[in-house]
């Protein structure tokens, strides 16, 4: 508020407008980024986005028509309409138009509905919703054992990948907005969705069904790669963990095993074969830590191990009180698991 020379308080009138502008900017910011259904990178998402835009434009046209008609009868030509005219407006605008528009939208919607149910081109990815992370198994065509990883999903561009979805304890929902529509995951029941990503890039998936205290922290990175790069990555992912070479990491591996981390976590190629928590064989090369909670840096690894419950409420993994030296060694070991 500003006090003018004459002592009056000047009303700062454009505040409302500026506030509205800021809110609009904030809302529009949600349209971009890696987790936007409007910033599409796959066929399923593109058809949903097209449907959205058509419906949005249609809604704007309808809004203009309804308000235009209201303006016309209340301001431009007030008074009674003749019965014949009024009836044609009622029947045309109230019955014929909605029936035609809704039938067309229904037919369109139903025609794109079967797309994400189509079988994949070969690769099958099994994803299980856990409390609150994602167990991921890659089953390339003809594979007898899966390639197990967690909290990150990589897909080859230009191919349709089939997802087989399940859940451990409660209902979750698998959703990568930039690639396609979501699918619920149920304990004791398998659901299926197939996605055809087209544009390589890093996107974000998120659990879309409230599943408990850390539901909001149940995310993952979805990386779409050119097919050759994907094949190379999958081959590297299938390999055992690289044994540590430097001394700190070697000490870290001992800390890992002596603290009992292996009871819950697997690091392939070591004695750690637990399956309660996420597989850590290649944790060092993942884009996120703790199912999208933070990035994999030495500092974040340390914070995660010592403040797990603070970062992810009600998570099963307890916070560990380690000496500074042990913690530094342990994070060095984990970061080196590329």
């Amino acid at each position: 508020m500003k006090v003018q020379k004459n002592g009056r308080v000047a009303r700062f009138r454009p505040v409302g407008r500026q506030f509205g502008f800021v809110v609009l900017l904030m809302a529009l910011a949600g349209c971009g980024g890696g987790q936007s259904a409007l910033n599409t990178a796959g066929r399923e998402a593109a058809s949903i986005a097209l449907l959205f835009w058509v419906m949005l434009c249609g809604a704007v046209v309808l809004w203009l028509l309804v308000n235009g008609a209201f303006y016309y009868v209340s301001r431009i030509a007030p008074g009674r309409l003749d019965t014949r005219h009024a009836r044609s407006v009622l029947i045309g605008g109230g019955i014929v138009l909605p029936v035609v528009v809704l039938t067309a939208l229904l037919a369109w919607g139903l025609s794109i509905l079967p797309d994400p149910r189509r079988p994949g081109d070969g690769l099958v990815v099994r994803v299980t919703g856990e409390q609150w992370w994602w167990r991921v198994e890659y089953w390339p065509e003809g594979a007898e054992t899966p390639i197990v990883t967690a909290n990150e999903i990589r897909l080859p561009a230009g191919q349709r990948t089939e997802f087989r979805l399940a859940a451990d304890e409660v209902i979750h929902s698998f959703w990568i907005p930039a690639l396609g529509g979501k699918m619920d995951m149920f304990p004791g029941r398998e659901t299926m969705i197939s996605l055809a990503p087209e544009r390589p890039g890093v996107y974000r998936g998120q659990c879309a069904e409230f599943c408990g205290a850390s539901h909001a922290w149940m995310a993952f990175a979805a990386v779409v790669m050119p097919p050759e790069a994907f094949d190379d990555w999958l081959a590297a992912e299938a390999a055992d963990a690289v044994p540590p070479t430097d001394e700190a990491a070697l000490r870290g591996q001992e800390v890992f095993l002596s603290e009992g981390c292996g009871a819950c976590h697997t690091v392939r190629g070591t004695e750690a074969v637990g399956t309660v928590g996420p597989d850590l064989t290649h944790i060092g090369s993942r884009r996120t830590l703790g199912a999208g909670r933070s990035t994999v840096t030495l500092e974040n690894l340390g914070t995660w191990i010592t403040h797990t419950e603070a970062l992810k409420p009600e998570v099963r993994m307890p916070s560990y009180a380690l000496s500074e030296g042990d913690l530094a060694d342990l994070t060095q070991y984990l970061k080196g698991l590329k």
Partner: peptide, 15 residues
């Protein structure tokens, strides 16, 4: 009835 019947024609199978 037309609306209820449309999925029968446009969606195949049980998926």
């Amino acid at each position: 009835v037309v609306f209820v019947s449309m999925p029968l024609i446009l969606i195949g199978g049980c998926q």
